[in-house]
């Protein structure tokens, strides 16, 4: 099987490529939760791209408004990626088995890389102190989502943490980044393509893990559905914030929100 990330490294995912959530469980465990799979997946789109893009790629001329819009957007991506990094690192210790532990460790490295490339890009766009700018421009909804996610990790709740991180947050990022990659300047677009390839793996892990768990423990469905209801406001609010940053027209927004609804529907958690 071709690793998902490798196949999608050009940002032109084909219909024939198998999505992780479509793999049968045995294949999924064998393929996706190993260091070698991760390495094979990422080397295709990281090699020669120290900050997520080809250094030979020329910088486009961006007007002031466009540049500020990208900075605001990337700052909020950084909040999401910092949340993902801190949650994933905490979840390594919560992982219930060897394969999940290894996968979460690879996710920690992915999230750290995402944060690094976004911060670097913000600096490239003329911001002197990217970390301070992230603090200044962060939307309340994504900050609140981060706080709730880290509470779940601190409580040692593996299933809820997987749901909040690998389904809800990853779906949000996957959806928004994928859209943004189509409209952004060439450098930002290439950075986003590499990140989206990672998010697809993370999302696949979340759906497989929870899908398997819910088959074995159907009583947990009600608890996770309730949690989804609680987090919906924050997730959808974060979507709105991202749409505003991207200057997305209102009639385009439901199209993007559908990915989120499809992900939770696959788990039977629409509520």
């Amino acid at each position: 099987m071709t690793p998902t990330g490798t196949a999608s490294n050009q940002g032109d995912t084909t219909d024939t490529e198998a999505e992780p959530h479509q793999l049968d469980e045995e294949t999924f465990y064998g393929e996706v939760r190993s260091f070698s799979f991760w390495f094979e997946a990422v080397e295709g789109y990281l090699e020669g791209r120290p900050y997520g893009y080809d250094p030979a790629m020329p910088e486009e001329q961006l007007d002031q408004q466009h540049r500020e819009r990208i900075v605001t957007t990337l700052c909020n991506y950084c909040v999401g990626e910092a949340a993902a990094l801190e949650a994933a690192s905490g979840m390594v210790r919560l992982a219930p088995n060897h394969n999940s532990r290894i996968f979460m460790a690879t996710q920690v490295a992915d999230e750290a890389r995402h944060l690094e490339v976004f911060l670097h890009r913000i600096g490239q766009l003329g911001v002197q102190d990217p970390e301070a700018e992230v603090q200044r421009l962060a939307h309340p909804n994504i900050v609140a989502f981060k706080a709730r996610l880290l509470e779940l990790v601190d409580d040692g709740d593996w299933d809820a943490s997987v749901f909040a991180l690998n389904v809800l947050l990853e779906t949000l990022e996957f959806t928004v980044f994928r859209y943004h990659a189509r409209t952004a300047d060439a450098i930002t677009s290439q950075i986003l393509d590499g990140v989206v390839s990672d998010e697809r793996r993370h999302l696949g892990f979340g759906e497989n893990t929870l899908g398997h768990h819910l088959v074995a423990h159907p009583d947990d469905r009600a608890r996770l559905t309730e949690m989804k209801s609680q987090l919906d406001t924050l997730v959808l609010g974060a979507f709105e914030g991202a749409y505003d940053d991207l200057g997305l027209h209102r009639d385009q927004r439901p199209q993007l929100g559908r990915d989120y609804l499809e992900a939770v529907e696959r788990l039977g958690l629409l509520g």
Binding site: L85, E86, V92, T106, V108, A112, L115
Partner: peptide, 21 residues
């Protein structure tokens, strides 16, 4: 992995993330 969250700065978080891997 536990130290990633405790690190006081991003460069340390990034290094510890690679160490986790």
């Amino acid at each position: 992995s536990g130290l990633v969250n405790l690190a006081p700065d991003y460069p340390s978080k990034h290094f510890l993330a690679t160490q986790t891997l």
